[in-house]
Design a protein around this nucleic acid. Structure first.
Length: 843
DNA sequence: TCTCATGCGGTTTTT
DNA sequence: CCGCATGAGA
């Protein structure tokens, strides 16, 4: 990930402990230990108002700077000192600002060294932003802090400590796709598919167990093995766990779970980190799962006296950290979160971690941030009204001093394309009125919804980018190239080895692969060594040559690793393996782009080298494994951003389009069965609403295409939870329906939901007839992509568009394939069209 | 062993 | 609709 700055990494890669500034604290210099200021050794018990702002005012110069422009609650959140602090931060309440200033104030007041601070965020993007903002406040003073995600913090610890429990520090990290490949093989071997197991559901179940910190052994103890299906699952879980261990690999969930295990099994290891981190801060606490919660608990545990003595005997400076009893008190914990924005329960996030924080950490202080600095009051009122429908939540109301602002704009399209056209048109209007594209975002529930949006956007020549779509690193050819690297870095990584075995095709088929695997098994050697011994397997000469050739290439590459540059290693691998060459000479036209992608990877490694001069191959692999969808958000690109509601969390835009607000989509059909499903979906809607600063658009469609079929869609139940006076419907569900023609209401339409007291114009529900009348829709958009070749247009030309009818070209801009016609249509108004693919003809 | 054709199933969100 | 698995033929 891009979040680790070089100096940060430096201290981690070699020996972590020795590099820590804390070891260099001159003894007797009590200023930097907790002991010097009020309430360190024995925290002022229980939620005391004393510790922060009031008592003994700050004696350092920069403090007021850090408090500038903060409201009283925010100030308190920055200044409070105590063992535990919960900041309940509503959407847009300035929590990042509070968090960064809190960190800065700890440093500036010399209450802590940077190295004593651990700040954990959920995404690399958030970590990067936080690091940047802390850096802006402190400059070099921020160096040495750990500001990272749960996962990268754990990787760092695990790499350092792996040898303690049977792994080597060059372990591979399996992402969810890797896990599924592995499970696929296991399920096939065990013939577990007959019990209904699939890689997806097995992986989900294992992940759930690991999030609860269960391992195979504990699971085996509680499972009912007389149930054959359960017995089978246990077998899968066993095989999976064993495969990971043998491959010297961790999956995503292991990164957290194994770190907790490490701390619990090896108290002296835990003590190092407990001693080091005196201030632990956790962002998005409502999204932590049990494993993450446990990790935090372990990290903030006190170090018992005898363990401190041990540390001291080993040469650590611990005296300043001891309390009266000689132990090192637990680190101070600050968590920030908002239970209304908890949207990851499906992934094991436990909302109780935040709702029961005060019970977990007795004496914890709670600060509430309710003033919103982001959105207009209308948007906030809608958000408040929606979220109020979730029961069992603490009442909390966002408010703004910024005025009501514009009404929310509602629109109902006849189809997903129609809806997309509305979005595109509105964006053009906003842009024409001076709003930058980069300040506009379009949200949707599922990735599948991007298709219609993309089609229309391309045609309308709207610059857009999809955040977290098919990611670069998920492409097969990139995974192939990465597998070569993984195989070199971790020779035990059988999964990677098998992946590259016949990629590119070198005549090593499944039969040979199985032979190699059983040869390895029988002789108790690794797959890698089996490759080396291929000659003794008695295979055909051609196959044997292919195998030894690959084996030698890997050897050559590992020799190169020692000399350094990752880019040289990857270059060697992808050229000598023939990976690029094969793609280049393929007659599949898509392979050309794939070859370019693989070569792009070289550029990526060079970037990495520039940013991490001391980074090695393992560091590079780690970085790549942990990059996530939300991380490559680059706001400077000047494009409209498209993303799922989940990706949207934590971001904000001037104008937001919330699309597909329909039953079965939001709330999603799949959520209906889950216990907290509908509430979580509502929170997702709430998150979407609260991303908007000034303009919020909510749209839906009457029919939606899915899996190639169109089906009738119903307005989302959440729509009617927004007070009618806050929405201005450009085209309400009722209006959209009536325009379609006859008003025969379907018998099963839910009339009561759309009673007169909700939005006006909503009474008419969708009817089944819409489908058959589809061809008459005025805004209908065909979904075939066409190519107009070198169609020449100039201003003054008349054209005909399949959807918009006839119009006159006003202007032509752009060059080549990106030529854009600005057209004034006779009835549809002004549009911009990408000439190459727009469904138009000259008349 | 590789390539092509056909049929089937699946589908939420992601560190 | 799309990707993937499966099976036949080269």
């Amino acid at each position: 990930m891009t979040t680790e700055n070089p100096s940060d990494r430096d201290s981690a890669t070699p020996i972590i402990l020795d590099g820590w500034p804390v070891a260099e604290i001159p003894s007797g210099d009590g200023v930097y230990s907790n002991g010097s200021r009020d309430g360190a050794n024995g925290w002022p018990g229980g939620g005391g108002a004393g510790a922060g702002a009031g008592s003994g005012g700050p004696g350092w110069g920069g403090a007021s700077r850090l408090l500038d422009g903060l409201n009283p609650q925010q100030r308190e959140a920055v200044e409070y000192r105590g063992p535990a602090l919960l900041i309940v931060a509503g959407a847009g309440s300035g929590k990042t600002s509070v968090l960064t200033r809190r960190v800065a104030s700890l440093i500036e007041s010399r209450e802590a060294w940077p190295s004593q601070i651990l700040a954990i965020t959920f995404t690399n993007k958030a970590a990067a932003e936080m690091r940047e903002r802390v850096g802006a406040l402190l400059g070099q003073g921020a160096d040495g802090m750990w500001i990272s995600t749960f996962h990268s913090a754990c990787v760092r610890i695990l790499r350092k400590e792996a040898e303690n429990f049977g792994f080597t520090q060059s372990f591979t990290i399996y992402d969810s796709a890797d896990s599924r490949v592995l499970l696929k093989r296991i399920i096939k071997e065990l013939e577990a598919d007959t019990f209904g197991f699939t890689p997806a559901n097995a992986s989900a179940r294992i992940s759930k167990l690991k999030n609860e910190l269960a391992d195979v052994e504990s699971f085996a103890r509680m499972v009912n093995t007389s149930d054959p299906q359960e017995a089978m699952f246990l077998a899968i879980f066993r095989a999976y766990t064993r495969a990971l261990t043998v491959a010297n690999a961790f999956d995503f969930d292991d990164l957290i779970g194994q770190t907790v295990y490490l701390f619990r099994a090896f108290p002296h290891v835990a003590a190092k980190y407990q001693r080091r981190f005196r201030h632990v801060l956790v962002d998005e606490y409502q999204d932590t799962n049990h494993a993450q919660y446990s990790l935090i608990r372990e990290l903030t545990r006190a170090v018992p006296t005898d363990m401190v003595n041990e540390l001291e005997a080993a040469g650590d400076h611990v005296r300043n950290l001891r309390d009266d009893e000689g132990k090192i008190p637990g680190a101070s914990l600050t968590v920030v979160g908002d239970s209304d924005q908890s949207i990851y329960a499906f992934r094991g996030a436990d909302i109780r971690n935040i709702t029961e924080f005060e019970r977990d950490f007795p004496g914890a202080k709670v600060v509430l941030l309710e003033q919103n600095y982001r959105s207009t009051q209308n948007i906030l009122s809608a958000a408040n009204a929606v979220i109020a429908n979730n029961f069992d939540r603490k009442d909390k109301k966002l408010w703004s001093a910024g005025g009501d602002g514009d009404k929310i704009i509602g629109f109902t399209g006849y189809s997903g394309h129609d809806e997309a056209q509305f979005v595109a048109d509105e964006i053009e209007k906003l842009h024409a009125a001076g709003m930058a594209y980069s300040e506009i975002a379009v949200f949707y529930r599922t990735n599948a919804q991007t298709r219609a949006l993309e089609e229309i956007f391309i045609r309308s020549a709207l610059p857009y980018r999809i955040m977290g779509g098919t990611k670069f690193y998920e492409r097969a050819e990139i995974k192939d190239a990465m597998a070569y690297l993984a195989a070199v870095a971790n020779p035990l990584d059988t999964l990677a080895m098998r992946r590259i075995l016949n990629t590119p095709k070198r005549g090593i088929g499944p039969a040979t692969e199985t032979q190699l695997a059983s040869f390895a098994e029988a002789n108790d050697i690794s797959f890698r060594e089996a490759l080396r011994d291929a000659a003794s397997l008695g295979l055909g000469p051609k196959v044997t040559r292919a195998i030894t050739g690959l084996s030698e290439l890997l050897d050559e590459a590992s020799a190169l690793v020692a000399e350094g540059k990752v880019s040289d290693v990857i270059t060697l691998l992808i050229t000598k393996s023939g990976l690029v060459e094969t793609l280049r000479s393929s007659r599949d036209p898509q392979d050309e782009a794939r070859a370019e992608n693989v070569e792009e990877l070289i550029a990526v490694t060079k970037d990495f080298e520039r940013n991490n001069p001391d980074g090695n191959l393992v560091d590079f692999l780690t970085e790549v494994s942990l990059v996530a969808a939300a991380d490559d958000l680059d706001d400077s690109s000047g494009t409209v951003s498209l993303m799922t509601l989940h990706t949207a969390k934590g971001l904000e835009y001037d104008a937001v389009f919330l699309t597909g607000v329909e039953e079965d989509l939001l709330p999603h059909r799949m959520s209906a069965g889950e216990p907290g499903g509908p509430s979580e979906e509502r929170r997702l809607f709430y998150v979407g609403i609260t991303r908007a600063r000034k303009k919020l658009h909510i749209s839906l469609a009457m029919t939606r295409a899915q899996y190639g079929e169109t089906s009738v869609a119903m307005p989302s139940r959440y729509l009617q939870e927004i007070p009618a006076e806050l929405i201005e419907w450009r085209q309400s569900p009722g209006m959209a329906n009536s325009r379609g023609g006859t008003q025969s209401r379907a018998l099963n339409a839910q009339k009561s939901r759309w009673g007169d007291d909700s939005a006006p114009g909503l009474q008419g529900s969708f009817n089944g007839k819409a489908l058959t009348e589809k061809k008459d829709w005025p805004n209908r958009v065909t979904n075939q992509v066409r190519d107009n070749g070198d169609l020449e247009l100039q201003s003054g030309d008349r054209i005909r568009h399949t959807d918009f009818g006839e119009g006159r070209v006003q202007q032509v801009t752009g060059i080549g394939a990106k030529r854009i016609a600005h057209v004034a249509f006779d009835s549809a108004g002004a549009k911009k069209l990408l000439i190459k693919i727009a469904p138009i003809e000259k008349i």
